[in-house]
């Protein structure tokens, strides 16, 4: 691939995104390629060494907030014609609920992931609280009743408390993994809004 093709493809896929980000990234890749050529590489070789357009696009998306990506990519690139506005207005009972539904689905999906983690923590917390309560009640009952049941309560309390504490370790790990997963999901959603490949290329390949 030639340098210009590489740059054009990035520009095409980033179309509509904040111009400042697009220009910065294109300047960066263009400088990298030029520096490699100056270092003695052939143009195609330099472009290859810089990496794939996919990786470049991912790296650029990394620094643009999700809301900005969606806003830029759903905004029409030209002024709408009158009949288009009419059509949009007439069709709004259909597309608007669908759009809201879609957005809610994404938000809900994101929430559900975290709610599962929170639920785990809540259960663990309940275990520890009930363990502590059982322990305290057991100690208090020791002075009033015979030793059998209070000791049982103390033992059960310690068991629950210890189990709850031990469960904390894998749970914290789970929360960390979820955080990473959530990041991957956000990047994945961002990539929906970026075209996969240049239309011309598809024609040539198909």
């Amino acid at each position: 691939m030639k340098k210009q093709e590489f740059i054009d493809e990035i520009r095409m896929r980033m179309e509509g995104l904040p111009e400042e980000e697009v220009t910065k990234s294109i300047d960066y890749y263009s400088e990298m390629i030029d520096d490699r050529i100056e270092d003695g590489m052939a143009e195609e070789e330099a472009v290859d060494a810089v990496g794939t357009v996919d990786d470049a696009v991912k790296g650029i998306l990394d620094n643009i907030p999700l809301t900005k990506v969606i806003k830029a990519k759903t905004k029409p690139s030209r002024k709408l014609k009158v009949w288009e506005i009419v059509l949009l207005a007439v069709g709004s009972p259909i597309w608007f609920p669908l759009l809201v539904c879609w957005i809610l689905l994404i938000v809900l999906f994101y929430c559900v992931i975290w709610i599962i983690v929170i639920a785990f923590f809540a259960v663990d917390f309940a275990l520890m609280v009930s363990g502590l309560a059982s322990f305290i009640v057991g100690i208090m009952a020791l002075f009033h009743a015979g030793p059998t049941y209070p000791l049982l309560a103390i033992g059960a309390g310690l068991f629950l408390l210890g189990g709850g504490l031990m469960l904390l370790i894998p749970l914290i790990k789970l929360a960390k993994v979820t955080g990473k997963l959530a990041k991957v999901i956000v990047l994945w959603i961002k990539s929906w809004f970026v075209p996969k490949k240049k239309a011309v290329n598809e024609e040539q390949e198909g």
């Binding site: 910065k24 990234s25 960066y28 890749y29 400088e31 990298m32 520096d35 490699r36 270092d39 810089v50 990496g51 794939t52 990786d55 470049a56 991912k58 790296g59 650029i60 990394d62 620094n63």
Partner: peptide, 30 residues
């Protein structure tokens, strides 16, 4: 230093690609 030089300087210690370096530089700049 500039992008390509940074990649070259880091090479003996850590391999890093252009597309990995870019978000790091942007993040550090922000």
């Amino acid at each position: 230093s500039y992008g390509y030089q940074i990649i070259k300087d880091m090479k003996p210690y850590m391999q890093i690609s252009e597309s990995t370096l870019y978000p790091i530089l942007r993040r550090l700049e922000e």
